[in-house]
Design a protein around this nucleic acid. Structure first.
Length: 510
RNA sequence: GGCCCAUUCGUCUAUCGGUUAGGACGCAAGAUUUUCAUUCUUGAAAGAGCAGUUCGAUUCUGCUAUGGGCUACCA
């Protein structure tokens, strides 16, 4: 019996989504599309303490920028709405209670202070406290307290939690689509809290299982950090009697820091000089973090790079459109071991996408940057400037440094170039060249090149000397594209003006 | 500490018992060049260790080592 594929991306709005989360969302999306299934976005905001305003909107905008489409979720609704767990709160208690009734869970009345004290006590003895079968009957729980006292405590308003009654000494056999069979002895597990009266909310474990069941999720594709709680989750499906519709699991390898030593975390970005977030982020407290979008990356390049971090198509293809990713994605080809994030490769991918952009496409991303610098030009002009220099750019944010002289005449001249070329007979040659240029009517780069080269040859001047002196006048530095790209772009009048400016303002060396 | 997962060039990875262990990033050299790039060519660079299974192990098994994750009334 094959069920319709339904997957979910279920982030917690405790801050901006980082690229590991984006990759998890991406793989879910690719899997859904590959199998004609549905992609669900569920917001897991069951931790009222760590909730961060704006994080949910950030997540949604990030997925949009990446082109990861959502079929059902907080924005688009769907048959299982609401998709925000805080809005489903009344659902969960019923299920927690059902578990208590069936003997799979129990009330516990320990306070946080009592538990902390216990942990300290165990620690001082060199042991680790675990809330499990060996201690649960010595604590204040509905397992040992008389029924009427349990009722009295609850009615009195004492705080309580419902804990899962983890069986002891049982081997749980699980299957993971990426890792194969995994077995765990339940004696190593503890009695996880499923529901807390303090905020009348479930914890992740309960909410997750209940919602996955209710939302008819067929495959759970999530990060490897969840693998240790898989036995609990499997046991919960069993406790609810939902084993026949239990989803299949796939635990993705982690994204590691570029330097190794741990999974990529939200702090690493600014520390190591690359973004860990898809978009720029500003927290309610004013902290900011870089994002790929604002740092000048194309979403297609970002996604292409991310898709290949932990998955490969088994061929040597390295450039993929989203559709191509969908067509070739499979969980079988997801690797098992963590992948270090490579900022260099991200830049390289972006450069490759940059080189393939048309002038019109470049104009779209470049116009806002030009406007920021006070340059108002047509899309055609913006696209042409970017197009001439795109091979030298990796990020769209590189474009301004690369093309500013197209729009702004140099007023200062790079010292190194001045020393090298603004000497000897070069100023005189430049004056001559000015005359040659002035006489050209067709200022297209091909024609200008023909005329100027013929003149250089006829005069027997050094090509490098002439061109670089001209470059000094037009660009002001030893950079830029071929000179005729510049002359054509800025036009005759501007060329002459810039040459005149150099001649008039800078004294030659010697 | 306990439990779980992993282990091929510096990095991302291919290989589903028999290969000169392939590709990509990065790096180096050369070519191109009008500056800066791009591009092209070439090169250096890997099976963690030890046992076992087998005619034959990178590939299968075990142990060791190393890396990582989890171990909250966080997800």
């Amino acid at each position: 019996m094959t069920r319709p594929v339904r997957v979910r991306f279920a982030p917690s709005p405790t801050g901006p989504l980082h690229i590991g989360g984006v990759r998890t969302a991406l793989y879910n999306y690719l899997f859904a599309r590959r199998h004609g299934g549905r992609m669900i976005l569920r917001i897991e905001d069951t931790d009222s303490q760590r909730f961060v305003p704006g994080a949910e909107a950030y997540i949604i905008e990030s997925l949009k920028w990446c082109g990861i489409g959502i079929d059902e979720g907080v924005e688009q609704g769907g048959p299982h709405a609401p998709y925000r767990q805080s809005e489903r709160r009344e659902i969960y208690l019923k299920y927690a209670l059902q578990l208590v009734e069936n003997g799979w869970a129990y009330y516990a009345f320990d306070t946080a202070d009592e538990l902390n004290a216990l942990r300290k006590e165990y620690e001082s003895r060199g042991e680790t406290f675990a809330y499990n079968a060996t201690v649960r009957e010595q604590l204040a729980t509905s397992l040992v307290l008389p029924a009427d006292e349990v009722r009295a405590r609850i009615e009195r308003g004492d705080q309580w939690v419902i804990r899962f009654k983890m069986p002891a000494g049982e081997i749980v056999k699980m299957h993971d689509l990426i890792r194969g069979d995994v077995e765990v002895n339940t004696s190593t597990l503890d009695d996880k809290v499923l529901y807390k009266s303090a905020d009348a909310l479930p914890t992740y474990h309960l909410a997750n299982i209940v919602d996955d069941h209710l939302m008819e999720i067929s495959h759970v594709i999530r990060g490897e950090e969840w693998l240790p709680s898989l036995p609990l989750h499997c046991l919960l499906y069993r406790a609810f009697g939902w084993e026949d519709t239990q989803p299949e699991f796939a635990h993705l390898p982690l994204l590691l820091k570029p330097t190794g030593g741990g999974k990529l975390s939200k702090r690493d970005g600014d520390k190591m000089g690359f973004p860990v977030f898809p978009l720029f982020w500003q927290s309610p407290t004013g902290e900011t973090a870089h994002g790929y979008r604002e740092d000048g990356y194309f979403p297609e390049a970002f996604i292409n790079m991310l898709a290949l971090l932990g998955w490969n198509p088994g061929t040597e293809q390295e450039f993929f459109t989203m559709q191509e990713l969908i067509d070739s994605f499979s969980l079988e080809r997801v690797s098992k071991s963590g992948a270090r994030f490579q900022p260099d490769k991200a830049r390289w991918f972006n450069a490759q996408y940059m080189h393939r952009k048309t002038d019109a496409e470049l104009a779209v991303v470049y116009q806002p940057i030009l406007r920021e610098h006070g340059i108002e030009v047509s899309d055609e002009v913006a696209g042409k400037a970017a197009g001439i220099m795109k091979e030298r750019a990796q990020l769209t944010t590189d474009l301004w440094d690369l093309t500013s002289y197209f729009f702004i005449a140099p007023t200062e001249y790079e010292e190194k170039q001045v020393r090298k070329y603004w000497k000897g007979q070069n100023p005189e040659i430049l004056r001559e060249l000015r005359g040659v240029l002035e006489g050209i009517d067709d200022f297209s780069k091909e024609h200008t090149e023909e005329v100027v080269h013929a003149w250089i040859e006829q005069k027997g001047y050094g090509m490098g000397q002439v061109m670089n002196t001209l470059r000094l006048a037009l660009v002001g530095a030893g950079k830029g594209p071929g000179m005729y790209d510049v002359t054509e772009f800025i036009g005759k009048q501007e060329c002459l003006r810039r040459i005149d400016h150099l001649l008039a303002t800078l004294k030659p060396a010697e």
